[in-house]
Design a protein around this nucleic acid. Structure first.
Length: 504
RNA sequence: CGCGGGGUAGAGCAGCUUGGAAGCUCGUCAGGCUCAUAACCUGAAGGUCGGCGGUUCAAAUCCGCCCCCCGCAACCA
């Protein structure tokens, strides 16, 4: 039976242009999506942009644009980055899409019907200059940092969600891993939140114009978390006449996100889904945060890394590789600009690129056609590759994508050592059959490496396989066949190609 | 007493759950090789595993206290 696999990134807030963090989460999702397609799952991979709220309206106004124009422009920055990074999402949802509006309204309506919503009042510090509520933390000496005035304490009518009604159940689901939360430390952090006070949260706003109107009270706009989170179902057609995808793909197999928004995904979202009598997500995974040179990435410090620059400098595949392999997936990590060059050269140029290059050259230089049909199998090498696949899969299933990549590159290392030990150039003319065996083993190892990196570096994988004229035929094969050791003969059409990753 | 993460060779990290000769990548140094993208392979130098104390035949690993970094707490992955 074919398994379905629904994977999402958060929808990104358009108040900011995309940075390394957005790219990180999205590339990770793409790798997992590609992997699952690769092994034969039916995949739906969703990403998108979150476009409502006072902040966006404000930013738009500042540059003299309508909110919609503003959103169109920023949202396009995301889609073009995803193009540049070869992201294979099946859909891209914007919260300003009509389909989303319909679904989101339907969803909040459902919450109300379930008696999960009540009218209350929200009290906060409102700055008339900003036209928004400020938190205590934002204030400087009790004043709005932008307008230097004391905000007014005012209250407005809001609708609230009865989180207290569902929290216990959500907690139970998490404890029993019905909603599996990873990594472990994030899970315990979430469970810790239940011990503290979890307050009912507001699901609407009165003083915000840029948003989706609450269906039963048009003086209110649906507040961010209901609006944003519901994208995961509205993109599948929830609430519309065409909800085939919703029926097929819901619930989510994997919600991927940065750790900052875990609370909303792990607690608020399942609670709302329970209220609406929908299935809850199966798995939530929070990735870590980047610091740059030991400091948090921030616009004010000016250390924000633009993923577009990485693509320009290293190319799409290498940028994917560099971004994803900086530190273990699920943990925080620090990056330095110099490190990108270093790792590019070490792993891609000197490692993989050079391996392909030297094996290709040897194969073309040493004429071993007379050994055709006499090439044996080397059990040790076969076992090594089989084992590598086992580990690779295990890590992938555990979302340890950096480990899968490491496993793959350990084969690169092995192949390079193997060449040094066997010295094909010395064997040639002395023991041609042995020489042929070594070269065939090497090419076969490279074939396996190519398929392993396929979800990570799709273009490179195709390039390598094309170089050995394997792509056309193999790309049609099933996963189970691809990963089997293949003994092939010496009649391959091998082309000398350009360096995969020229050294920097 | 808010919650959580971390402090291991020059740099970045793994190991800690289930105690038992300190490992990986990059860098440095010295050899080797010539098929290759000045690449590749081998070897070496370099660490009192944040501090103090405890448990133990044995602690980076378990326990206690202390010091120092960092993230989160209604909208920056």
């Amino acid at each position: 039976m074919i398994k379905k696999f629904y994977i999402t990134t958060p929808i990104y807030y358009v108040n900011d242009k995309p940075h390394l963090g957005h790219a990180y989460t999205t590339i990770a999702a793409d790798i997992l999506a590609r992997y699952h397609r690769f092994i034969g799952d039916e995949v739906f991979f969703l990403t998108g942009t979150d476009e409502h709220g006072a902040k966006v309206a404000k930013s738009a106004e500042k540059v003299g644009k309508t909110p919609k124009q503003f959103c169109d422009e920023i949202s396009a920055l995301y889609t073009s980055l995803w193009d540049a990074l070869n992201i294979s999402n099946n859909d891209f949802i914007r919260t300003t899409d009509q389909r989303h509006e319909i679904g989101a309204k339907k969803f909040i309506e459902k919450l109300r019907e379930a008696d999960a919503i009540y009218e209350g009042s929200y009290e906060g510090l409102y700055c008339t200059g900003c036209e928004k509520f400020l938190t205590e933390k934002e204030l400087v000496d009790g004043k709005c940092p932008d307008h230097k005035i004391c905000p007014d304490k005012i209250s407005e009518k809001n609708y609230f969600f009865k989180l207290d009604k569902y929290a216990k159940k959500v907690q139970e689901l998490i404890e029993k891993d019905k909603i599996k939360i990873e990594p472990e430390n994030i899970r315990s952090e979430v469970l810790g939140l239940f011990k503290q006070e979890l307050e009912n949260f507001s699901v609407s706003r009165e003083k915000v114009a840029w948003g989706i109107k609450v269906p039963w009270d048009e003086s209110q706009v649906i507040y961010v978390w209901v609006d944003a989170l519901s994208n995961y179902i509205t993109a599948l057609g929830y609430g519309s006449s065409n909800d085939a995808n919703f029926k097929k793909y819901w619930p989510t197999d994997l919600h991927l996100m940065g750790k900052d928004i875990i609370k909303f995904h792990a607690i608020y979202w399942p609670a709302m889904l329970l209220a609406a009598k929908l299935a809850v997500p199966k798995h939530i995974f929070a990735n870590g945060y980047f610091t740059v040179n030991g400091q948090k990435m921030s616009k004010t410090i000016g250390n924000v890394i633009d993923p577009n620059d990485l693509v320009k400098k290293y190319g799409s595949d290498a940028a994917r590789f560099l971004i994803i392999s900086q530190f273990p997936f699920g943990q925080d990590g620090d990056v330095k600009a110099e490190k990108f060059d270093e790792q590019f050269n070490a792993n891609l140029a000197n490692g993989l690129g050079n391996l392909v290059s030297r094996v290709t050259a040897m194969y073309l230089k040493l004429d071993l056609k007379k050994c055709k049909g006499k090439v044996l199998e080397n059990k040790e090498v076969v076992r090594l590759v089989t084992n590598a696949w086992k580990n690779y899969e295990k890590f992938m299933e555990e979302n340890k994508i950096d480990q899968s990549l490491k496993t793959t590159f350990s084969l690169v290392k092995f192949a390079n050592e193997y060449i040094s030990v066997e010295k094909p150039w010395e064997l040639f003319g002395k023991d041609d059959e042995k020489c042929a065996l070594v070269l065939c083993n090497l090419i076969e190892i490279i074939r396996h490496i190519a398929w392993m990196i396929y979800p990570f570096l799709p273009e490179t994988a195709e390039n390598i396989l094309t170089q050995f004229s394997m792509w056309d035929e193999e790309s049609k094969l099933e996963y189970a066949k691809l990963k089997k050791w293949k003994r092939f003969d010496l009649d391959l059409q091998v082309k000398k190609a350009q360096a995969l990753f020229p050294r920097i």
